[in-house]
Design a protein around this nucleic acid. Structure first.
Lengths: 121, 121
DNA sequence: ATCTTTCTCAACCAAATGGTTGACAACGAA
DNA sequence: TTCGTTGTCAACCATTTGGTTGAGAAAGAT
């Protein structure tokens, strides 16, 4: 089993069925049988998927008679978005700098579009 | 191999070594040997990781003499952030509505914690 | 031409993954 | 109590994955 939380979350969402389940749970809590209904796999398979999502902290299961309502824990998403945003911003910044360098070169390639730029972000 | 692009991206980032490589590439392009140096795995293993990242569209490899500089393609991140944001927002909206309902109920359960903000971890 | 460097491909291996079936625990209903 | 429903656990199976070693392609250096 993956050690670090970030790997667990990414790994959990790397499966289309599990992303589908998350999408379903965003609408509202559901039981395992309800979640399994749309797919032609056994309930056990869906239960396994839910365990993966639970280990990643994306989902929680409570007890209610025989039923086990599954609930989406949205806050774990932040872990991912923070990681993603960090490196995207860094890469975009780098790209911008490269762009500046190219622009500052008189006519190395000459394909420079005659454009005046705004300053995004 | 995973069919859909979203699964490929999530799956690619589910590995700590590959996330590390992405972090490194955010600083600047690098060759396979440079990328492999910090880890005690073979260059072949890193080459495989790069292939996974490339299939996910997160990275591109060009040719420059014998060297193959690896470049980070930041735009693919958007695919993920869009997906994540959508369901997080949906789940938060749902939580807000549930919160409203609970607040509008006079004293259904009475175990209501006194107005605390933020989840108790 | 022959070496050297850089990197990928192919074959193999152990472990993880996603699925199955079968057994059974927990609980409400009869 | 016995039955039906809901869900998990255990064992098993096929495929994928992350790693290895060994061979070889591509291009500059000698």
């Amino acid at each position: 089993m993956a050690a670090d939380p970030l790997s667990r979350v990414f790994s959990a969402l790397a499966d289309p069925t599990r992303r589908d389940i998350v999408a379903r749970l965003a609408i509202g809590d559901a039981t395992v049988n309800e979640l399994a209904a749309p797919y032609d796999v056994t309930v056990q398979a869906v239960s396994k998927h839910l365990r993966v999502l639970e280990d990643a902290g994306l989902v929680s299961r409570s007890r209610e008679a025989q039923r086990r309502p599954v609930h989406l824990e949205a806050n774990v998403f932040d872990l991912m978005t923070k990681w993603i945003e960090r490196y995207r911003r860094q890469a975009e910044e780098r790209y911008r700098r490269l762009d500046d360098v190219l622009r500052s070169m008189p006519d190395a390639v000459d394909t420079t579009p005659p454009k005046q730029e705004g300053t995004p972000s």
